[in-house]
Design a protein around this nucleic acid. Structure first.
Lengths: 253, 253
DNA sequence: CGCTCCCTTGAAGCTGTTCAAGCGATGTGG
DNA sequence: CCACATCGCTTGAACAGCTTCAAGGGAGCG
């Protein structure tokens, strides 16, 4: 599946008019003009291998990206090395809006699988606000949506116990993937390692492993190399007390 | 200090030209035109008592507010009643941007002290994007700033122990209040109850109490009716491994 | 073959929760 | 003006959820 990566990043040319992601139908319809502006703004199409830094914490002047394919995550690391994963990023998600607004990002973003990124230069963001209010609004909308995901994460880590946290994480990913038409018969791609889950949920690796095993024993789901099969999403949502709906038809920039 | 509140909300008239908050000098300079537009947009100036709902979870079509005076917080509650405070809001902060973008808010916002609010009708938000890109940009900027606060909270709750969490919370409030010129000789207003702290940090009330006592015993700070006196902010920041800087000169809408 | 990465399992111990009780300040109605 | 309720803070004690330490196993790869 993973193609050979020679340099740190490969480049491809994919005009926004031929965007496979948009063709999935999961996104808000868009006018010809808006599409042309986005295409104009997109400077590059990058391919990065799993584990690559998309935004590094030290870095100045981080760019803005749209995740075109693959999974990524944002994280924050304390001086002594403790790491917290803030949220996971799926196709269509914006990466680096916060970083583009400030001088230096306060977090890092990393590719979790091989990813493809649409590069939207940060110095063109302002032009969007000046010339294309619809798209500027969409940008803000996507920022608000990301915030709502972190809100949910924070409630999980603050108020749910280990098994509930894992259940909530899986359900929320399931709903997001489902909206992207990436769930087939209850089976979803699941490239997270147990360490990723632990880092996202504020748990130790060992306890994450045991809680996952417990949920499997309960018959909630099964896993086979990179795929997770949800037998009963409803039961899992109940266990997690998770009832947020994924917002329908979001914009894609 | 607290004036008598007769109805659920009192109304006042404060034109943005006479904004005491802006006069504090903590905010980004603004053009005459922008100020006029904000003044035009501001429909009302509300006074709500402590404990009042600013945004209720069920509510549709929540409005957008700027907190003019007092403290508030956003929170999320699970079906079984467990509550997580997501972040605290101080003067100059926007309330309800996320809610204004979606149909229904996914969280609640509540006054923690008596508050004064500038009401910015949500149906005028779009006009801002169309006519005043500078202000629309500022709106997005403020959204990104709020997200960075939640990022920090999430890292606390996920990866810091009880005393570190409390230390980090106090330091971050201290820095924000300091930027607003609300700290006098290391003394800051501190209206949070221990229950608020517990709900914000994912701790039980009892353990919050004991951890607070420990920090006081360590000589980190002292509390006297609604005021917290920080003896050594640097030591507290070290203990929390908290080193984020409050971004200088933010916009005020 | 040996290395690394990820997952798994057992055991011990600590951090934080839950239960329980009491205290002082504030407010209210008889 | 006192009796009584409420609210926020405090403290002790028992328990449990989660962490840490330790060890081992399987799959993929040079």
């Amino acid at each position: 599946m993973a193609k050979a990566i020679t340099a740190a990043s490969d480049r491809m040319r994919i005009p926004c008019f031929e965007c496979a992601l948009r063709a999935s139908g999961a996104f808000k319809p868009i006018s010809e003009l808006e599409l042309a502006v986005i295409n104009e703004m997109k400077r590059d199409h990058l391919v990065l291998p799993a584990g690559a830094d998309i935004i590094a914490t030290g870095q100045e002047q981080a760019e803005l990206y749209t995740l075109y394919a693959g999974w990524a995550f944002r994280s924050k690391t304390l001086p002594d090395g403790r790491r917290q994963i803030l949220n996971f990023l799926l196709p269509g998600d914006l990466i680096g809006l916060q970083a583009a607004m400030f001088e230096a990002p306060l977090y890092g973003a990393e590719a979790l699988t091989e990813v493809q990124l649409c590069l939207l230069p940060r110095r063109k963001v302002w032009a969007l606000f000046e010339n294309m209010p619809e798209l500027a609004f969409d940008l803000t909308w996507l920022g608000a949506r990301e915030e709502s995901h972190i809100d949910e994460n924070l409630t999980s880590v603050g108020r749910r116990n280990a098994t509930e946290r894992i259940a909530a994480l899986i359900i929320s990913l399931y709903k997001r993937l489902d909206a992207l038409k990436l769930v087939v018969n209850g089976a979803m791609p699941f490239p997270l390692s147990q360490q990723h889950i632990a880092d996202a949920l504020g748990l130790s690796l060992v306890h994450t492993n045991k809680s996952l095993a417990k949920l499997r024993r309960l018959g909630m789901f099964s896993q086979t190399n990179g795929t997770l099969l949800l037998s009963n999403p409803h039961a899992l949502a109940n266990l997690a007390q998770y009832f947020d709906e994924e917002t329908p038809k979001r914009p894609l920039i």
